[in-house]
Design a protein around this nucleic acid. Structure first.
Lengths: 238, 238
DNA sequence: CGAACTTTTGATCTAACTCAAGTACAGTGG
DNA sequence: CCACTGTACTTGAGTTAGATCAAAAGTTCG
């Protein structure tokens, strides 16, 4: 687990993602205590699995860099993607139910994660209520995020789904300081289709339609948002 | 809020749903402390709203009797149902994100709920770690439940969706001591359709197909599971 | 360069939607 | 008690968005 990458060993208190992973308004002592939660960090190569369906639930993972997809494979080997996670987001929240992970987390590009053993997480959150609240907020957010997806799968048409997906991605990237007009998709059309409940051909055609309508520009996996307002109104988000 | 219904004022420690709402393995003192969380109880009449989208998040609600649906209405007034909650389940978990509820909870029949103010919930869970873990587990379960729905909406066909829905309902009822072969639907075909991403006519036809195939028997909203195994295999759950 | 993979494009096909009509039922009031 | 009304559900016919099948065009990488 040793690494020569100095940027990798940055402390939580110095991490530019801390506002996402950590509660706000902590004093120095509490900050150190939470910092001590991160027992180790792991490098995950593109395509590798961080945790798999059924594995014992031992830790939550905070993504320091890179991106993941969470998914399950059914008996016929068909893959269903639940979502994509990027730097600053937590992976493994599904493990509390049965103390086992109940999905796979697969890296979409080389990634680095901070490992936070749940046992310690529980100990520390007993001492720092703000951490407990923070965890509630994050889990609650995941519930709400998935509802958004349900809304999408329940009632929207292909282009609308894709528009909503793109808006959602750019908003998350914007919260991390990235441009909200440029977007490098880390996942395949296949993965997007699975997550949005569409076939890959339909995703491709929906991209085409959005380009035709002048809402986005497209170069392979690089998306430029041309008309954010139009995209939002298509996605019924504005 | 006064009531003459003696069964209604039952203490948590006497409640036959306690294994669902409360953590297990508590001593008497802890039990009393958690009991003190339930500051009041509320009667909700059929069709009434327990909480609405945008309302301040002040409490979690444990359903003592009756059933609810959670849903949102979009700008065009179209309703999207996220799920149905029955006795022993918690309502309001979506409120932690922004301290506001972000869906409506509507009673499908006359219902009784235990009101647990979040402020006190947080205080008590600082003292009783088992309560904090329990809350994590419940929120995690909700995340996993919604994923199940995503799976359903993402890849299944109408009959499969309905089969999965029926199996899921009976399993939850069975966990509460009800028959797993009989099922009284509390919600309209409309609500089922919205939750499963289907039109009402499609729901009706899907019910018809399940009856034809001898998997269920149907009398209005009363469902009898005839071939649980067949239903499960149709829903790809066995 | 060539093999494997990803994405796009075109041509059908079909499950579910939409529209329309009819039936069943609960509640209300005469 | 029955007629009247509104709501919930079912059934039928025609339409369509997206699936499926097929093949070509890019892209990646050893």
């Amino acid at each position: 687990m040793k690494t020569c990458d100095s940027a990798f060993n940055v402390a939580c208190s110095e991490c530019n993602l801390r506002q996402l992973c950590m509660p706000s308004g902590l004093d120095a002592a509490q900050m150190r205590q939470i910092e001590s939660l991160v027992k180790s960090k792991r490098h995950i190569k593109r395509g590798q699995t961080l945790f798999a369906n059924g594995m014992p639930f031992q830790a939550l993972f905070a993504i320091r860099s890179g991106a993941f997809k969470t998914c399950v494979f059914n008996a016929q080997g068909h893959e269903q993607v639940f979502g994509f996670q990027i730097a600053g987001e937590l992976l493994g929240l599904d493990g509390f139910v049965s103390n086992r992970h109940c999905c796979d987390a697969i890296a979409l590009e080389d990634a680095q994660v901070c490992v936070m053993p749940i046992q310690e997480l529980q100990t520390v959150s007993e001492e720092i209520p703000a951490l407990a609240s923070h965890l509630h907020r994050i889990m609650s957010a995941e519930i709400v995020r998935e509802r958004g997806l349900l809304l999408l799968l329940g009632g929207m048409r292909a282009e609308e789904r894709l528009a909503a997906f793109l808006i959602h991605m750019t908003e998350r990237l914007a919260a991390r300081g990235f441009s909200s007009a440029q977007l490098m998709l880390r996942m395949s059309r296949q993965d997007i289709g699975s997550c949005l409940g569409l076939q890959i051909e339909t995703v491709s055609r929906a991209f085409g339609k959005l380009v035709e309508q002048g809402l986005i520009a497209l170069d392979k996996r690089h998306v430029t948002i041309v008309d954010a307002q139009g995209l939002k109104s298509l996605a019924q988000l504005a």
